[in-house]
Design a binder for these strands. Structure first.
Length: 577
RNA sequence: GGACCUGUGGUGCAGCUCGGAGUGCACGCCGGCCUGUCAAGCCGGAGGUCGCGGGUUCAAAUCCCGUCAGGUCCGCCA
């Protein structure tokens, strides 16, 4: 039907008879003898010179056959890849008429996302969306290639899985054949891939859809895609190496940026220096511990377990009203207050200005200036509280105030390792898994599991990029004794464990290789590579933040017949309370 | 479950503080003119339940209450 793509015609084609197909973009009419039509396909735009308008309108689908000709002198268009040429002597065939679209197909036009989603098929015609989806496909392809060359085998796992009541809320699928019973859609292929290791697959990977019925966010959809891997007879370092290699392959091919290695931070370092387990390393602004400096302070607000601060550079000047805003924000996050000290020049060198300045001892002032190497116009922000709060609040302020440092790479990856095995205790006094119940403890710490469980580290790790968590993984428990102990401290009885994960434990009893794995969130990865801060921009058909699809109107009620077939009876709202 | 922001012809906005006739801008659409445009240009035109419901008022896009939808965040996401 066509001989060429619109965007690929160039001066090399001059004189050729070509047929191109696509959508009518802008038209420029000059009376009945001359009109220009921009014909668009996914490769770009070519200008077609026609006599009269042929009744063409925006988004008509046409086939144009004509001769590639050089444009007359002075009429070339540098903004167009095909701007040196045009198609003349055109024969136009309308393949499909089109209603006037609700918005123009142009990257220049801003349209409310709701409207874009209702007409997603039109939105997808836009250059930006085409680019994102094609880049996404390229990333998938590169990842497949990278893992296959590292000895991994792609295996598909079931979407109709069995309920494992732990962690995220599951999407439930009623069984027609067994009334009253349900499948669930997998939160991730976690257990399936461990079974593949028991099954001797050795190294598995899959570009897997995962489903979690939790509230949506800019970086979270109900369904999302993970590059999921698992490998046998490996250490944590092996897994980091596999993934690092894949990241290097993908980033270099997609962005041209060459990464040599990915720095490794311990969880403790990350929390101490950046106040978060997903640090944005595109800028420094590290958190400094000031507890020692203020251990004998007269300042009442600083009499706390943990005192920490960050230095805000002079490039981010903080007016009094901005400071007031920051104080309010810190309080919203649970701080009792936020102290600030502004460095100013004086006859005696740098001095600190602050409502607290007069209470600040001379030694404290000196130590503070020294600790931060502070210079005029810089501001120190200080929080004094329990350590988890000082870290968390300063970490948030750091993210709010920090700007990517032009000296640093635009993509700053980091591994965060040695996460705590447990997050804390639930209301029944049982420990809560940091990652999941199959995560291998750090065996150096395992003896502390009863005396000081919260200080037990795990063999788990996150990959972080520019302050986003891209993925996480762990070495899994393959030993009975350790798994039993973990279930026990999590408050899962052996009966409960049997009921929930019996098939997995049974599998492990038949010879489980040591194994571990990782899952990389592809939506987030691709959004970051595309320079988007919302994953909906790299998903063909996403849902709104209330889980609605404006195009299909899903979710919708189903018919009484369907309900009956599934043995389901809707209950009225008031019956729920 | 909670907080904040947004909702005005097909699209994007202004108007809202301080109530006075659906007032305005840009794009698109329809018609006319136009033989080298390319975000074409010029002339004319059509197009509105100001998200929805209630209240205050002589009078509501504007003030108040409620509600729906969208966005961002908190909770949640082993």
């Amino acid at each position: 039907m066509r001989s060429d793509y619109c965007g690929q015609i160039s001066s090399h084609d001059i004189g050729r008879q070509v047929s191109v197909c696509g959508w009518v973009g802008r038209r420029r009419e000059h009376g009945e003898h001359l009109a220009f039509i921009d014909l668009r396909d996914h490769t770009g735009i070519i200008q077609c010179v026609v006599q009269g308008t042929h009744g063409l309108h925006s988004e008509y689908v046409v086939k144009i056959t004509g001769t590639v000709s050089p444009r007359p002198e002075g009429t070339s268009n540098k903004d167009l890849a095909t701007g040196e040429v045009e198609i003349t002597n055109c024969e136009v065939e309308v393949l499909s008429k089109a209603d006037s679209p609700p918005f123009s197909i142009s990257d220049r036009i801003e349209v409310e996302e709701n409207v874009r989603l209702r007409y997603r098929y039109l939105d997808l015609r836009r250059n930006k969306m085409q680019h994102h989806l094609r880049m996404r496909a390229k990333v998938n392809s590169l990842l497949r290639h990278s893992f296959e060359s590292q000895g991994f085998t792609e295996v598909e796992t079931p979407l109709l899985w069995t309920p494992t009541p732990e962690g995220a809320r599951e999407f439930v699928v009623p069984s027609r054949m067994k009334p009253g019973s349900f499948y669930v859609l997998p939160q991730s292929p976690q257990i399936a891939k461990q079974l593949l290791m028991v099954g001797g697959l050795d190294r598995y990977y899959q570009i897997a859809r995962c489903l979690r019925d939790e509230d949506l966010r800019a970086d979270r959809q109900f369904e999302f895609t993970q590059l999921d891997i698992e490998a046998s007879f490996v250490t944590q370092q092996d897994i980091l190496d596999f993934v690092t290699q894949a990241v290097i392959d993908v980033v270099s091919e997609i962005t041209g940026i060459s990464i040599e290695s990915i720095p490794i931070l311990t969880w403790e370092q990350s929390m101490e220096l950046y106040g978060t387990d997903k640090p944005d390393l595109r800028f420094d602004m590290q958190i400094v511990d000031l507890t020692a400096i203020f251990k004998d302070t007269q300042i009442k607000a600083f009499q706390a377990n943990s005192i920490k601060g960050i230095k805000v550079p002079s490039s981010c000047p903080l007016s009094r009203s901005k400071l007031d805003n920051l104080v309010a924000k810190a309080k919203e996050m649970g701080a009792k207050g936020l102290a600030w000290f502004k460095a100013v020049d004086s006859e005696d060198g740098v001095v600190l200005e602050s409502p607290l300045a007069k209470h600040l001892g001379e030694l404290e002032s000196k130590a503070l200036i020294e600790a931060f190497g502070i210079e005029p116009l810089e501001t120190i922000l200080i929080v004094a509280d329990e350590i988890s709060l000082t870290r968390n609040i300063l970490g948030n302020l750091r993210n709010e105030l920090g700007e990517p440092d032009p000296e640093k790479p635009s993509l700053c990856f980091a591994w965060v390792v040695d996460f705590p095995l447990f997050e804390g205790f639930d209301e029944d006094g049982n420990l809560i898994s940091g990652h999941h119940p199959f995560t291998m403890p750090n065996l150096e710490d395992f003896h502390l599991i009863d005396s000081d469980p919260l200080s037990v580290r795990s063999q788990s790790y996150d990959l972080v990029l520019n302050g986003w968590e891209l993925g996480s993984g762990s070495i899994r428990i393959h030993r009975d004794d350790i798994q039993s102990k973990i279930f026990s401290v999590l408050g899962i009885s052996s009966e409960q464990a049997q009921e929930r994960f019996g098939f997995l434990l049974s599998a492990f009893s038949f010879g489980a290789p040591p194994h571990g794995g990782f899952a990389l969130g592809l939506d987030r990865t691709i959004a970051l590579l595309a320079g988007e801060d919302n994953i909906r921009e790299v998903i063909a058909f996403p849902k709104t933040s209330s889980g609605f699809d404006p195009m299909t109107q899903a979710p919708k009620p189903i018919s009484p017949q369907q309900l009956k077939l599934l043995s389901l009876v809707p209950i009225k709202d008031e019956a729920l309370d």
